[in-house]
Nucleic acid binder design. Structure first.
Lengths: 190, 190, 190, 190
DNA sequence: GATGAATGAGTGTTCATTCAT
DNA sequence: CATGAATGAACACTCATTCAT
């Protein structure tokens, strides 16, 4: 008996991400993905229940990998502003090294089939950041408003900015990112 | 292909928007749309070159309608903050009255086929707002940073917030919107 | 606009019957049927909702045609035995001229997907025969047992016999049929 | 391929019968059957050449088991009618205790792949009954017609009746069976 | 101008079978 | 002997688009 092949699964994951980047989610057919991975479409169904499962699983994988990466990058603890600054930097660093993964999760998360992923499960991996924000509010460094609002101004401009940069050629202008972070910080700081 | 029968074209537009809202962009087939509009699929091709043209044209139509609506709502001219506050209010007013149109443009703009729309043409309709920002920078009321950055913090949290509110039942909490605007303003003000 | 084509529908019906006869129900794929009919598989879906609908509709068509044929063949009214004898003869006459249709309904009716056909609707077309049996019981010519039992001994040996004859080369031996009818009549007569 | 592991083979047989009963012949895939038997699909191919062989072999097994059962039940030898009456009773007794096996052979025997079973081999196991009929004809108790005809009126109504009873809930009404036998006997007796 | 019929190309998925272990 | 992984071929069905009327 041949063993379920780590290499094949990896091929499947990167083929899925690449296909979605090239053709868009809607045009990413199972057969396109399988062909790019060098597998038969039937093989895909050994590793994933169906197409939805394939996409959602990879989405979860990438998101978790990303959140782990970012959290590990945060070393400074002197001030909240510095921590969030590191967080922004880490994010752009990750994105610039994983453009395809990032574009994949952006496409997937704005598609309706995203609704099936376990949001609760997802949330767990962002708890450290949620904790930082709570602390900041308690210490009076951050505005005492709805937690979601803080996250909104911390992340949504970041994501849109990163997406735009990738779409427009892919250069990540550090100066612009720094400026953007200042705006973000000004929006949430007390 | 245009200017055939105003009524049929309108039916087509609202059928498209409704179908995309119900089934998602990926599952919105030409025949579904035509059926909902009470037309034959073939008739659709009299009014639009192909499916892409249909979606992109409606996207442009809705975006322009939205920008016109917003610009007309701005009456106050005393201070820039008040103007932008009105702009936010107008935006949420429009969105709450045109949920389907809004969700349509959100879905379309995060799909890859959005790339074909004429961005230059689009930009023209947002010139009044661009003008306001330029003025604000000149007068020293707004940070002297890249124009795109100002727009980013003015609009991207707004759009994400509106989308979330619609997804979570549809209630538009005015207090939250006001708070959100304060964060937005704090991010761009000097 | 091209009109829905009587000829194409007929082609579809006879292609379905022929394919089921050649390959068996289970191996009769939509594409095989369409190819034999000289049509694209997609065209089939203009005429029938899906594969089940195709098979069930044709089953109903053939059954109704068969029952009409048989009922029209009954002219004699002198004695019940003669009527039933005519019925047997008519049946074998129909079957020998419509071997493929007969084998098709035999295969379909012993398959599980037969369950979806409207049995009530079907029953209506056999009411004349049901009436004859009821009369026979009243007049004391036929045993006063469950109606289903009479039908069972009138029809099930007939069908099995016809099927066997077709399977074994296709010759319809009249003498054997006459003998068989005598057995059938002996089983139900008082 | 045979004589490997008695237990596994038995598991395979009952899994096949159960699957065919649950899903129908057409939807009974090799992997479904293997899973129900607690085996790998590959293992199945150690015991049987292919799917057809699996089904045909089991069909033969069940038919032989059934004929053995029935023949062993016949004890009485006073009159041919009593013998055949016992035969009917034995048949219904077997069927009511082995509904799944019976439905399996019914489904299989009306499918075209049934044609591959060795009819000669099959016939052997029914020789005792053939003998009884021949005797009856000689003694003048049974009509002197084609042997197949006698079998037809002895068995085909019986099988159809049993199938209907199982389909309609599964109750075996003894009175109806007795009546049916009387009709069967009347059809063949001299 | 308007249409339903028509279709080649494609969809996601399952199949019976074989292979490497 | 036994197996889970692997697959080419097939499955039922839908698609965007065109054509004849």
């Amino acid at each position: 008996m041949r063993m379920k092949d780590e290499i094949k699964q990896r091929a499947l994951i990167s083929a899925t991400i690449a296909t979605v980047n090239e053709s868009g989610l809607a045009s990413s057919s199972v057969s396109k993905i399988a062909k790019k991975a060098g597998l038969s479409p039937a093989t895909l169904y050994i590793y994933y229940k169906d197409k939805e499962d394939l996409l959602a699983s990879i989405y979860m994988d990438v998101k978790i990998e990303m959140s782990n990466y970012i959290i590990n990058e945060i070393t400074e603890e002197s001030s909240l502003k510095k921590i969030f600054s590191q967080l922004w930097k880490a994010m752009f660093k990750y994105i610039s090294c994983h453009r395809e993964e990032f574009m994949f999760i952006e496409q997937f998360s704005s598609s309706p089939c995203c609704d099936i992923v376990n949001k609760k499960e997802m949330e767990k991996h962002f708890e450290p950041i949620t904790g930082l924000i709570k602390d900041g509010i308690k210490k009076g460094e951050i505005k005492n408003v709805d937690m979601g609002l803080i996250k909104l101004f911390l992340f949504s401009p970041l994501m849109v900015l990163a997406k735009d940069m990738i779409k427009q050629g892919g250069e990540f202008k550090e100066k612009l990112i720094k400026e953007a972070f200042e705006l973000s910080w000004d929006s949430i700081k007390l």
